[in-house]
Design a protein around this nucleic acid. Structure first.
Lengths: 129, 129
DNA sequence: AGCACGCTGCTAAAGAACTAGCATCCTCGA
DNA sequence: TCGAGGATGCTAGTTCTTTAGCAGCGTGCT
């Protein structure tokens, strides 16, 4: 059974990975800059080294420095996270999760977005038949 | 300023808290049973004690044993988690998150659920106007 | 009442995470 | 070409997490 990668991370490691997912790709300096309670540069660097060893990150060379990126695609990570959130907080019901998202104060949908969502639901209705 | 509780947890602590959110409330034994890579009973017990000190858990007495529950309501936890997931993996777009949920293989919506979602969206459209 | 079972309180120690600083190497601009 | 700035490789030490085991107490059953 595939182990949930998010379950296997220490606190800082998860923070770092989150930053990288948010940015897509990032240098050590960028990660430090984006970390809420930034520890030392060295610390972050060491952690990222470990994460690379463990296989959660890779790096590309860019001139003198490294640009880190996740080994798991954002797509896959998204699915994994959603799945576990639904499981943990919504009794396995995606519907409830969607409802909560719709009611989230931060959401603020435009007319177009709502239309797009309607369309998606219609599509699901047709396919489910 | 309220600190993000999920950011402040160690690996095991987060695992434990997740189990408790999943179950709503739980004894130590139940948590152990639900943990994928269960450590010793003692270990879990110690961790939960620490988490209670830190304020993430409380317990109620039930006969001889403790029943633990989170100090933060499931409601609030849900919102917090969704917000951070949307932020980290969906560029702050709830719409994208919803779309991903709709397309999640695990989702499998019933006809009724889809209708309920349609209704919610219609409601949002009206309110947004 | 007596007994077995399960759960908590505590102590202590191994292990992993986290941090710092120095030496070295590469890159870019003067 | 030469120097400055910045980034990595490493080593070592501290701190926090995570673990186990023993002792005592309450609960429920016989």
């Amino acid at each position: 059974m595939a182990k949930d990668p998010t379950t296997d991370l220490s606190r800082r490691e998860r923070q770092i990975l989150d930053v990288i997912y948010r940015l897509g790709r990032a240098t050590v300096a960028e990660v430090v800059a984006d970390l809420p309670d930034a520890p030392s540069y060295s610390a972050v660097r060491a952690l990222m080294g470990i994460m690379e060893e463990k296989g959660q990150l890779t790096h590309e060379q860019d001139g003198a420095r490294y640009i880190y990126l996740p080994t798991v695609s954002r797509e896959k990570a998204r699915k994994g996270v959603l799945k576990s959130v639904v499981q943990t907080f919504f009794d396995g019901s995606s519907r409830q999760a969607i409802a909560a998202l719709l009611e989230l104060p931060e959401s603020k949908f435009s007319r177009e977005e709502l239309d797009a969502l309607s369309a998606l639901i219609e599509k699901a209705k047709k396919e489910g038949r």
